[in-house]
Amino acid sequence: MLEISGLKVFHGPIEAVHGIDISVPEGSCVALLGPNGAGKTSTLSAITGTARATGTIRLEGRDLAGLDIEDRFRAGISIAPEGRRIFANLTVFENLRMGAATRTDGGIERDIEEWLSRFPILGERRSQSAGTLSGGEQQMLTIARALLSKPRILLLDEPSLGLAPKIIGQVFALIEDLRHEGMTILLVEQNAGAAIEVADYVYVLANGLVTRHGPSGEFGDGSGLMGELTGVHD
């Protein structure tokens, strides 16, 4: 589905990611773990086209080089970004409409209603300004917005960041549901334990390099990853 090879990502003159290879098979959930500054969000930015990068990114065999942000989205890459980035000045319903802005089929309203019934709290607040939602509600909204385009792959950037433990459980339950529904997911997380639990395969990034990767079963409950995640080794 998504094949990344030799990826280097730049922020101005600084190279944040130093040539990594990542593979996300269709229908799988792949987790990208690592401490702050490891290059996780930079990798997602390279995939969505918001950061300058070299190397190869292929989606279903199609090289994404030269495609701008909008064309990558239209190719099937959708992101629920870090910090959620909901449109605070739009209503919940309008935020969801933005997610389906490129669709031309007749099922948009039906799909929006489906998401609003899946998250009843959003349904109750459909006409309310999205900026007034709680952090957890905003996270649900941003994931629903990302999925309304019917993407080929969903990128989730730190979906648990800044949320209460109870809400984190709900977010990961949603990711688990999506995985069972066959959605291909690339998940960036610092909450290693929860990410390993929902992922099929795990990459660990540190200082812009993949330091370890393998099936999620090899990582246990994630507690052994603390060295890689913090960069402090015994």
Partner: peptide
Amino acid sequence: QMVRLCGIR
């Protein structure tokens, strides 16, 4: 940028 990430040109 988020609008562009929703595919709107």
